[in-house]
Amino acid sequence: MSVEYRAVQWNRAKLVYDAVLFAAVALFIGGFTVIAWRLAPPQSLPGALDIWLRAFGVCAFLMLTVVLSIGPLARLNPRFLPLLYNRRHFGVLTFCVAAIHAWFLFDYYWVLNDLPKLAAQFTNWPAYGKFIGFPFKTLGLAALLILFLMASTSHDFWLNFLSPRIWKALHMAVYLAYGLVVIHVALGIMQYEPTPLIPLMLAAGFGTVVVLHLLAGWRERRIDRGAALGGDGWISVGPPGEIPDRGARITAAPGGERIAVFRDGNIIGALTNLCAHQNGPLGEGRVVDGCVTCPWHGFQYRLEDGCAPPPFTEKLVTYRVRVNRGVVEVDPRPLLPGTPAAITCPPGTV
């Protein structure tokens, strides 16, 4: 969190994250190039460019696979949350690697003095009616344009300008980009190279991402169905002692947004589960120094009223809570953002 504008708020965690990321990309590109060079030494400059073209293409596919796996992995197991912290930089670097792949393609035809042939592949209109023989480079270009859109708006300026809801919706286009990339490779290099590694890479990568997303969605269905409402419309959360100290239990009314009911010692408070920054899952965070801390990027809110501590100005929706016959209950009708609603548990109930 910051109250002053900085292009990137660097900290040690981000620097380490980026250093590991750059090292892994350099190692992969270097390793791929050395192995490919030794297996089939290129006889000309276009041959060398072809190796780099493939190295950056494979790297971009694998990076996109990892980027799309981080979200569901973090939802399935909090141990993966550190990967989510700086996922934006991962995404931007993925676009850069994909753009270099496209540049090497351009360079390849340039060196051969054959750029019209490259252009002709995009404008071969009859080929668009075929399946095998479809101009697969068009699919790659479409995916690259989507990744450019993602990378260029991967900043809190655009997040605030567009609002978290629209920004998130826009960034879901990356799923379409991934689908385009898979078909780009399947109709492209997979049709020319006999190696089984390409179909294996596509099946394993795409299969992993699909299974992780389906699994994460299936596991969360129960919460989204919503808890049964009591006679007066309140939801039973459970005895105070069953809410982890400085943690939360997440509940929801049928058809409603999730509510995170936190306990900090003998204080109970309920906030929306949506962080004001990027709609991160607040209920999976912890109470640190009396403030609910988002597990994604560390945004903080006071438990008693959902307000970010000064000088920050974010306010969250709060909910009324009560202890009824030893059971914490929450009223799913939201209060205005920043309304004090936390309570102190009666003695002997925690």
């Binding site: 879901m172 991934y178 795409f206």
Partner: peptide, 21 residues
Amino acid sequence: MRRAHRLVHRAVWPFLALAVG
């Protein structure tokens, strides 16, 4: 994530898996 966002996820991924697969 908002509930609507999760619902879209749940609808998109089976469709994407089927189409791309």
